[in-house]
């Protein structure tokens, strides 16, 4: 892993100034939009965000309104996406579910970001034994099956949305810590940081003013993609029986609960599946787009997670 950091570091050095200079360059937006995929990603994400915001307005029914004797109805004018095992309107549940999915993703990403950034900055900037100790801890967590950690946390705290979020966050922050530490290490060598140090600028100020802005790009990209992986992770935990508590209309839980219907009441499982897919695709495309625009190369480390 270290090597990736170092390669990333080198390129970060190479691209930092260039990137920094062009922050205000509006061509960026043009470049971003010129890639159709980015537009598609933006579109997908917007659809999900809008659904979440306007769920109560658009949804034909409440997400938890049951109608046992009209369960598993196929899509119709009344229920455009059919009804589920308890006769609830699938479309309504999906719309409300968008809120929950986004909520979870945002929360997890925010927690991982906070922990990861803090640890990464401290390790990278402090160096020495602090760095050593923190990075060892990261190594340990990385070598640890995330699923076990998540299961134990869900087990101890009881499976519900908050605890799923904690579980995914505990598993997820290490990547940020590594990337940020790597970036900090390389930025630290930069002339302007050294200069600031010599001028007696306080450490906190150096970190905030000079280092943080320089490591922001990979983190933004990683965070965007993480939004996607959190949703997939929730679905995976649901499959293992550790999903959101019923009747929460969480997509992963809906998908997992409906998994026996793939070829019978296909709407019960495939619509939540599609919702997840579109969202994950959207965030991934967005992340790719951001990366290309902000930093076309060397984001190899920003990869692969999920359960």
């Amino acid at each position: 892993m270290s090597n990736q950091d170092s390669t990333a570091n080198q390129s970060v050095i190479a691209t930092t100034r260039r990137r920094y200079r062009s922050v205000k360059n509006s061509r960026r937006l043009g470049r971003f939009l010129s890639n159709r995929l980015n537009v598609v990603g933006l579109l997908f994400v917007s659809v999900v965000v809008l659904s979440a915001i306007f769920a109560p307005v658009i949804a034909p029914e409440g997400p938890n309104e049951q109608d046992l004797f009209n369960r598993l109805d196929s899509p119709s004018a009344e229920h455009p996406m059919g009804t589920d095992q308890l006769g609830r309107d699938v479309l309504s549940r999906l719309l409300y579910g968008a809120r929950i999915s986004l909520q979870i993703s945002l929360a997890v990403v925010a927690i991982t970001l906070a922990i990861g950034t803090a640890v990464g900055l401290i390790a990278g900037y402090a160096g020495g034994w602090v760095d050593e100790a923190l990075m060892r801890f990261v190594d340990i967590l990385l070598a640890f099956p995330g699923i076990l950690l998540a299961l134990v946390i869900a087990g101890i705290l009881g499976p519900n949305l908050t605890n799923i979020m904690i579980a995914l966050a505990v598993v997820g922050w290490t990547q940020y810590a590594r990337i940020i530490r790597g970036s900090v290490l390389s930025v630290k060598q930069e002339e302007f940081v050294k200069a600031a140090q010599l001028m007696g600028v306080p450490r906190r100020r150096i970190v905030l003013r000079h280092i943080l802005p320089n490591v922001v790009t990979p983190v933004i990209v990683l965070a965007t993609m993480d939004m996607a992986y959190v949703i997939l992770g929730t679905a995976g935990l649901s499959f293992l029986g550790l999903g959101a508590q019923p009747p929460t209309p969480e997509w992963g839980t809906m998908l997992s609960q409906g998994r026996n219907f793939v070829d019978t009441a296909w709407w019960v499982v495939n619509f939540p599946g599609l919702a997840i897919m579109i969202t994950v695709l959207g965030f991934n495309l967005l992340g790719d787009g951001l990366r290309d625009v902000l930093d076309p190369r060397d984001m190899g480390d920003v990869e692969n997670k999920g359960m």
């Binding site: 996607a228 679905a235 499959f239 998994r259 994950v280 695709l281 790719d288 999920g306």
Partner: peptide, 14 residues
């Protein structure tokens, strides 16, 4: 790129 992303976007049990 889009095609490659489809696979990763589907929860794998589904």
């Amino acid at each position: 790129q889009f095609a490659a992303l489809v696979g990763v976007s589907m929860p794998n049990f589904w």
